[in-house]
């Protein structure tokens, strides 16, 4: 388990990170979200022992990153922001260096390197010098470094930054595959990514935690959550609005757009849920509205993100 206890960091008078606490269990993938300069990277750098916190600490699988730093660092795999690597080395030589540092020797080292090369799809560039590689490959080389020693705890700072959609997909698959036996923290500012990969999201803004819940719960905070979007053909908008506003499960009805005898409307229920949806459907068939499309909104993360982080 990674326990983050009251971490704070000041740079001069500026508070970059302000009293952040959370815990991540094995099997969890924690998405660390926030606008740029919210303190994501600073927090991760403190958890991995790169910069010392002004106060508070992080405990990695029982080892305090300040008091028992080496043991804590042994348990961590870390992918820093921008995926730094030594450009003058070949991919293999680089991973060999990392494997030595991680204490592997002899055949075990060779096996680990081969395995990691395979896992990260780096076979084809094994003997290439890193500075001849594209950004996506460099990112994967650094990612390979972080999982080389099969760490229990993975900390990934924007792991899919600069990758194309296919590569992003691959990296996400890899992360999800590994998550069963590991506790993973990953930072991102891509909301879809958080939704696709993470089991829990911590959102920070201006150095403080402003939300700590599952992606579904986050979506539930959305204004749009549970609203019904539908389009109706050949009907009068005014009577439609008055018909549906009359239901006690409905809060408001809004006409979004009209064109060629079809209009699009959004119905906000009083309490989101199947009951509200059922009553709306019943009302529609009662009044014989010709419904062309019908869709229950999940809620929009970007809207929630914006309202939480700018509040």
């Amino acid at each position: 388990m990674i326990e983050v206890n009251h971490l704070s960091k000041h740079f001069g008078a500026k508070r970059a990170v302000n009293d952040i606490s959370f815990a991540v269990e094995k099997g969890e993938i924690l998405g660390f979200l926030g606008p740029n300069a919210a303190g994501k990277s600073t927090t991760m750098r403190m958890i991995t022992g790169f910069i010392p916190p002004s106060s508070g600490t992080a405990i990695i699988g029982g080892s305090d990153i300040l008091k028992d730093s080496l043991n804590a660092r042994k348990k961590i795999g870390y992918l820093p922001e921008n995926a730094p690597v030594y450009p003058d080395m070949t991919v293999r030589a680089y991973l060999d260096f990392c494997a030595q540092i991680r204490g592997f020797s002899g055949q075990a080292r060779k096996n680990r390197i081969e395995e990691t090369l395979e896992k990260c799809f780096l076979k084809e560039v094994t003997h290439q010098t890193i500075n001849t590689l594209s950004k996506g490959f460099k990112q994967r080389v650094c990612f390979a470094q972080s999982i080389l020693h099969d760490p229990e705890y993975l900390i990934l700072d924007e792991p899919t930054d600069g990758l194309d959609p296919n590569q992003k997909h691959e990296v996400r698959l890899m992360i999800r595959e590994m998550s069963a036996k590991k506790a993973i923290i990953l930072s991102t500012h891509i909301l879809d990514e958080m939704e696709a990969v993470c089991t829990r999201a911590v959102i920070i803004a201006k150095g403080r935690i402003v939300a700590d819940e599952t992606p579904a719960e986050l979506k539930g905070r959305s204004e749009l959550h549970g609203a019904v979007s539908l389009s109706v053909k050949g009907a009068d908008t005014d009577s439609f609005v008055s018909d549906l506003s009359g239901l006690d499960t409905v809060r408001t009805v809004k006409i979004v757009d009209t064109a060629d005898g079809i209009f699009w409307a959004r119905i906000y229920p009083v309490t989101p849920g199947p009951q509200a949806v059922d009553s709306i459907m019943a009302a529609l068939s009662d009044k014989r509205y010709e419904t062309v499309s019908f869709f229950v909104e999940q809620g929009r993360l970007d809207e929630v993100f914006r309202s939480i982080t700018t509040a």
């Binding site: 870390y78 730094p84 540092i101």
Partner: peptide, 11 residues
């Protein structure tokens, strides 16, 4: 190059 972040977080 930022690799100092790697080397100082290695054990």
């Amino acid at each position: 190059m930022g690799t100092i972040e790697l080397i100082l977080t290695f054990p």
